[in-house]
Design a protein around this nucleic acid. Structure first.
Lengths: 197, 197
DNA sequence: GACAGTGAGACGGTTTCCGTCTTAGTGTCT
DNA sequence: AGACACTAAGACGGAAACCGTCTCACTGTC
């Protein structure tokens, strides 16, 4: 299994993912057809449907999951080594906010179910973000606070970051570290029911 | 309530044109639907089809014609007052090349028949450009050369400008005035069968 | 030769889109 | 008030695009 044959399906899969990226950024979710993706990837339709049985939904879901993992993996790299809960939270907020602002399609890809607009994000797509974020981030908070408390914090933070991304405020800029830190000190840390270790 | 007072059909027509622009620049020709345009323009379908009987083709053709006119009207403003044929030709080349390069959708809009890609431009769409260009520019060359000679020159210039736009050369840059002037002096003016007035 | 992976494309079912048409609502003019 | 012009909203049928599946031929590897 670990033996990599000369014909590497991984390359094709990567090409398809890249094609989805390219097509979506060019035309948006709604306008992209499977044929667009096939042509862009330089791949036959049969191949796409064989690699992603179920078609469009399955493929797009796979792309979204991949994006989610990449996003949080990159984030974890940024927040690892934090020496305090405050530091960790601040880094989370800043990195996530910047990344969201940087890649417009990311937010769409991360959260939305096919056919869903960005405006509905706070309604339905948020759940999965919170879920994945919790799974990725809470392990890093272990040394500071217990798991259930962490889950609670992550939940709130997710909603705040996304809310401020979708509808930026003139009073708080989460892409700014000082602002984020001030916010954490003022609103988050005091809310903890257990004193940080 | 959005009370539209004394709704003038011109406003609606302009809104539709703007909507086409917006939609095309967002999704491209092929991906745009009439409903997209209607929604973007904030206008009912019936209205669009009444203003442009024939539907999609007629509307898009109208948009293209409008673009063509705007393009050459703007160009004429730039080349009016030329004191020599050389000056006039150089200005034509430079203005057209810059304008084409500036607005990527312009070339598409100017030349292509619906469903046609930019690569086919030299084949089919070029005829109409040459036609309109001739109609707009030849009047301005009257004081330098006779009409039939002008038509010939305009024809050649159109093809050159478009060719260099579609496939830029490393030796000649038509958006550069000096390069264009040098080219005109070297290849165009000597080819005239009649000495310039 | 057996085999696995791929390209090309046909096929039927579904959805979307187009263009037309009808109806109702609104503002204007006489 | 009543006639009129214009538009929004949406139903409707036919056409086209799209989706997902499937078959067949081709290619490189074992």
């Amino acid at each position: 299994m670990s033996v990599v044959t000369s014909s590497q399906p991984r390359d094709i899969e990567a090409a398809i993912f890249a094609a989805v990226d390219s097509c979506v950024s060019q035309w948006g979710w709604d306008k992209v057809t499977m044929d667009d993706i096939c042509v862009t990837a330089g791949v036959s339709r049969a191949t796409v449907y064989r690699l992603f049985p179920g078609g469009r939904d399955v493929l797009f879901e796979a792309v979204r999951l991949g994006k989610l993992e990449n996003f949080f993996t990159a984030m974890r790299a940024h927040i690892e080594g934090s020496e305090s809960l405050e530091d960790l939270l601040v880094r989370c907020i800043v990195v996530a906010s910047i990344e969201l602002q940087h890649d417009e399609h990311l937010a769409m890809m991360l959260a939305t179910v096919p056919g869903e607009t960005l405006g509905d994000l706070t309604v339905s797509g948020l759940g999965r973000i919170v879920r994945v974020a919790t799974a990725f981030i809470t392990p890093l908070t272990d040394e500071f606070i217990p798991g259930d408390e962490a889950a609670h914090i992550v939940d709130v933070m997710c909603r705040l970051v996304i809310s401020y991304y979708l509808s930026p405020s003139s009073t708080i800029d989460f892409t700014n570290e000082d602002a984020a830190r001030h916010f954490v000190q003022r609103f988050v840390l005091p809310a903890l029911t257990i004193t940080t270790k």
